[in-house]
Amino acid sequence: MKEMTAKEVEELLNEGKKLAIIDVREVDEVVEGKIPGAVNIPLGLVEFRMHELDKSKEYTMVCRSGGRSGKAAKFLESHGFKIINMTGGMLAWEGNVEK
């Protein structure tokens, strides 16, 4: 599984790179703020919503600390998706957030 730090993700976004970010935290966690443009698909729903994803795209998975996003990344990779796990999760995120 490919990994990227929160700082690396922030730098790519600041450079204008368009990233497909999936936040796998629960809805009540995301209300406190998420990376701008991230799509919320709670971990428990990833299996049921993966049909919404495009296997030709690369997705960056995010959660609170990196654990749940790692599980989601492994699951989606096993189904042929290209995934990067953001290590440290939102606890390590220092960039802008949208509410």
Rank of each mutant, 00 (worst) to 15 (best):
K2I: 04
K2Y: 07
K2G: 00
K2T: 09
T5M: 06
A6Y: 02
K7T: 06
V9F: 00
V9A: 14
V9N: 02
E11Q: 15
E11R: 13
L12W: 03
L12H: 10
L13C: 03
K17Q: 14
K17L: 04
L19M: 06
A20H: 14
I22L: 13
V24G: 09
V24K: 12
R25G: 09
D28W: 13
V30C: 14
V31N: 11
G33M: 02
K34Y: 02
I35G: 03
G37S: 08
G37E: 02
G37Y: 01
A38S: 15
N40S: 14
P42W: 05
L43I: 13
G44C: 10
G44E: 08
L45Q: 15
L45C: 03
F48D: 09
R49A: 10
E52S: 09
E52T: 12
L53N: 10
D54E: 12
D54Q: 06
K55C: 03
E58S: 07
Y59L: 09
T60N: 11
M61I: 01
S65D: 05
G66P: 08
S69W: 04
S69T: 05
K74Q: 11
K74N: 06
L76G: 13
H79Q: 13
G80Q: 09
G80A: 10
G80F: 08
K82P: 02
K82F: 01
K82H: 12
I84A: 01
M86L: 01
G89I: 01
L91F: 08
L91I: 10
W93M: 04
W93R: 04
G95A: 08
N96C: 00
N96V: 02
